[in-house]
């Protein structure tokens, strides 16, 4: 009998469907791009199939473009805020980027 046989793993590290990317990011810090020029960086505690999420130790970055009414110059301003724990409704999410999986994580 071959010793090479790999036991069936409960948690595969392969990405076979898009949600595997999210599953493999549990307990890791992730980047989330939201509608309305908002970005989040935080630790992924939980998610569901709608991509609703619970993030911990979150920093939200809001990008605001302001137009000077006299000079018509556009100024890009970012507002940041910190939250200990945040529930994010999945329908506002555009993109999720996990920490890099390159290397031997």
């Amino acid at each position: 009998m071959s010793d090479e046989q790999v036991p069936p793993t409960v948690e595969s590290n392969d990405v076979e469907e898009p949600f595997d990317l999210v599953r493999l990011s549990l307990d890791e810090r992730i980047y989330v791009k939201l509608r309305g020029d908002r970005e989040l960086r935080g630790k992924l505690h939980a998610y569901d199939s709608h991509l609703n999420m619970v993030l911990g130790d979150v920093e939200e970055t809001i990008t605001v473009v302001e137009m000077d009414e006299e000079t018509y110059e556009e100024a890009v301003r970012t507002v940041k805020r910190q939250m200990e724990m945040l529930f994010v409704r999945g329908d506002g999410i555009i993109l999720v980027s996990p920490p890099s999986r390159t290397g031997d994580e």
């Binding site: 898009p18 949600f19 990317l21 999945g90 999410i93 555009i94 993109l95 999720v96 980027s97 390159t102």
Partner: peptide, 10 residues
């Protein structure tokens, strides 16, 4: 991004 998940409705 090294990896990116893009939500299907967008």
């Amino acid at each position: 991004y090294g990896d990116a998940f893009i939500r299907g409705n967008n």
